[in-house]
Amino acid sequence: MRQALIEALLLIVAAIILGVAYSFVTNQGFFAKTQSVHSVTDANIEMIPLAMAKDFFESNNVLFIDSRHEFDYQAGHIRGAVNVALKMFDTHLTRLNKISKDKLLIVYCDGAECNSSIELAVKLMESGFTNVKVFFGGWQEWSSAKLPIEK
């Protein structure tokens, strides 16, 4: 058993060395050029309720961004919303960069408990967009309120 504990310790040390070396070589983790790890509370993103999202929608001066999977988006989304699935952010970045950086962007996902909208909002802010909000009620609240949707 003592031998197993010593070997376990060796494996842990090897994992630390490997992890730090990998992180250094790939510029990820500790050595990332931009730290993109945020707790929801640290992210400093404005969360807006349904009523406010509806007001912005009616003002026509906003772009809704759906952060769900593409098939969820295809099944139904807020009218006029574009799909930027979080995993595909880098692919969509070229398209997003054509939008004015101070344009109001409202990000939503499935509902109040999903995190992809917040993570996408953080990535958008890191990419230079200055007016990003999260509609935390998301698709569930919007569709339940029978507000304009499209498929």
Binding site: L11, I12, A15, I16, L18, G19, V20, Y22, S23, T26, Q28, G29, F30, A32, Q35, S36, V37, H38, S39, D42, N115, E119
Partner: peptide, 29 residues
């Protein structure tokens, strides 16, 4: 690693720094 650190953060047990430590070490282990 960044995405994994975010996944760790979702559990609301550790802060961003410790989440990054976990993300650097745990996958290698």
């Amino acid at each position: 690693l960044q995405a994994f650190a975010n996944s760790v953060l979702q559990y609301k047990v550790v802060g961003p720094m410790l989440a990054m430590c976990t993300a650097t070490f745990l996958p290698a282990l």
